[in-house]
């Protein structure tokens, strides 16, 4: 699960000017024709840089995204739910592995990516800087955050970089179980006792602002991404993805007679689009830059995992091995 709307740097079009114009034209023609770019193909430096950034952050989001829900494994209500949650959390960690491998094919070794994560240099999806306060939070995360992730990942799986698209296809299959599992949990609580309904309503209230942040800043204020769209690195605008999400899931939330904490939320009959209160993008920026409720905890847990695993990795390592960039 992942929200990939906010991760791009303003692409420096000037850099493209220094690229070999014949190669660049050939590259853009291939992409326009729907061909995939493979690791050993020529690609502009800016394309490589933005892809590494995007896939790496996606991988970090998966591995950090396992933490808020992972917290609840030991306290899951019932054995079946515990098994299902363990399977989901393991899926997320597995997704990180697939994505790190895809990013590595572009030339950044995995260890450098992990270093950048645990030192706070790289970002990950902002939603995981919020805590899962009750069991109902895990239900809302598994249903709605994963739903957002699927919208994002299905779009990206039609992108231009072969290894990333292939990893995403595999990931989307697994996410569809997460979505059904999350929906099942939400429905169970929403159709249960008043206390259970209250739990899931409170969780929804807590998670609605992060969910609205999930697809990234409004197109009006986000960086220009025309080049990235032409290169099929970014596949849909942040607002388009947010609208798609609202279209698909608001009716499903309302049918459970849950309320969404946004009085302005309604479908505009004229435009066919959803009207909503503009999310607080200042809070979004503040949290993504480190000042959220769980940023420190997430990185501390990740650092401890690296420290605790070190002796195992060392014990199994052969001193004369050399790293090789994976093929695809």
């Amino acid at each position: 699960m992942y929200g990939g709307g906010y991760i791009f740097e303003d692409p420096k079009n000037t850099e493209s000017a220094t690229e070999d114009s014949v190669k660049l034209r050939n590259f853009e023609e291939r992409i326009a024709a729907g061909e995939k770019i493979e690791p050993s193909d020529w690609m502009p430096a800016e394309y490589r840089k933005q892809l590494i950034r995007m896939i790496e952050q996606h991988a970090h989001s998966e591995i950090i995204g396992a933490l808020p829900e992972g917290t609840w494994i030991t306290r899951a209500p019932g054995f079946r739910r515990k098994l299902a949650l363990m399977a989901k959390v393991q899926d997320e960690v597995g997704h990180a592995q697939l994505l790190y491998s895809a990013a590595e094919t572009l030339g950044k070794p995995r260890e450098n990516m992990i270093n950048d994560l645990i030192t706070g240099k790289s970002k990950y999806s902002n939603v995981f800087n919020y805590p899962a306060v009750t069991w109902a939070d895990t239900a809302v995360i598994a249903w709605l955050i994963d739903a957002g992730a699927i919208i994002n990942q299905v779009a990206n799986s039609k992108g231009s970089y072969g290894p990333y698209c292939r990893a995403l296809e595999r990931i989307c299959v697994e996410e569809s179980f997460h979505l059904k599992y999350g929906h099942d949990n939400v429905v169970f609580l929403a159709t249960g006792t008043p206390k259970q309904r209250q739990m899931v309503q409170e969780a929804l209230n807590r998670w609605w602002p992060p969910i609205m942040h999930f697809f990234g800043p409004s197109d009006r204020i986000s960086v220009h991404t025309e080049t990235l769209m032409r290169w099929k690195v970014k596949m849909a605008s942040n607002d388009d993805m947010r609208q798609k999400f609202l279209d698909m899931y608001v009716p499903k939330i309302w049918e459970l007679k849950l309320t969404i904490p946004d009085p302005k939320l309604s479908k505009n009959k004229e435009t066919g689009l959803w009207d909503y209160t503009e999310p607080d993008w200042d809070e979004f920026k503040r949290v993504i830059n480190g000042d959220g409720p769980c940023n420190k905890e997430r990185l501390a847990v990740r650092r401890r995992a690296e420290e605790k695993g070190e002796w195992v990795r060392k014990a199994l390592m052969k001193p004369d091995e050399r790293y090789t960039v994976p093929l695809s």
Binding site: T71, T74, S101, E104, P109, R110, E111, N112, I114, N115, I118, T119, P131, A132, V133, K296, E297, A300, V301, R303, R304, E306, E307, E310, R313, L316, M317, E321, R322, Y323, T324, V325, P326
Partner: peptide, 30 residues
């Protein structure tokens, strides 16, 4: 770190600490 997860609080994780950066091959070959 104080967490809502008691297991994490019990770990007494420091908020910041220096970690020796990983080197290439520390996560093995491909």
């Amino acid at each position: 770190i104080k967490s809502i997860d008691p297991r994490i609080t019990r770990e007494k994780l420091p908020e910041e600490n220096d970690i020796t950066p990983l080197k290439e091959i520390h996560h093995w070959q491909t």
